[in-house]
Computed example of a mutant assay.
Amino acid sequence: MPAAPSPTTRSRRQFLTLLGISAAAVSCGTATATGGGSGRSGSQVTTLKYQGNVGYVTLPELAADLGYLGDLKLEWVGNTISGPQDIQSAATGQIHFGGAFNGAIVKLAAGNAPIKAVISYYGVDQDVYSGYYVLEDSPIRSARDLLGKKVGMNTLGAHSQALLDVYLSRNGISKAEAAKVEALVVPPVNTEQVLRQRQIEVGVLSNVLRDKAVEAGGIRPLFSDFDLLGRFSAGSYVMTERFVKENPDTVRTFVTGVGKAIEWSRSTPREEVIARQTEIVRKRGRNEDTSTLRFWRSYGVAGRGGRIEDKEFQLWLDWLAERGEIKPGRLTAAGLYTNEFNDQGKG
Rank of each mutant, 00 (worst) to 15 (best):
R198L: 08
G20F: 03
S142D: 14
A178K: 07
L135K: 13
V54F: 02
L147T: 07
G123T: 12
V255D: 04
V134D: 07
K149D: 08
G324L: 04
G36R: 12
R284N: 03
L222I: 12
D127L: 08
R323Q: 15
W264K: 03
L164C: 11
D65P: 01
Y129Q: 10
M1I: 04
A179T: 12
G98D: 09
G123F: 05
I81F: 01
P84E: 00
A24V: 09
R297M: 10
M153N: 09
G111A: 12
A333H: 10
N207M: 13
R282M: 00
R144M: 04
F232E: 13
L146C: 11
K150G: 00
P2R: 10
W296V: 00
E288K: 07
R266H: 15
H159D: 06
I81Y: 03
R323A: 15
V106T: 07
V26L: 00
G29N: 05
P328M: 07
A100L: 05
Q14Y: 08
P7C: 05
R323M: 11
S174G: 04
W76Y: 12
A31S: 06
P248E: 07
G235Y: 04
M1S: 14
D289F: 02
R297V: 01
D343N: 13
E61S: 08
I262T: 05
R284P: 02
V204S: 06
V181K: 09
G83H: 02
F341T: 09
W319Y: 15
T191P: 05
Y50T: 02
S169I: 07
A91F: 02
T256P: 11
S130C: 08
V251L: 12
L164G: 10
T32V: 06
F226K: 06
I105T: 14
Y50H: 11
S224E: 12
S236W: 08
N342Q: 11
I219T: 14
R198T: 09
V189Y: 02
A302H: 14
Y121M: 06
G98Q: 05
E136T: 03
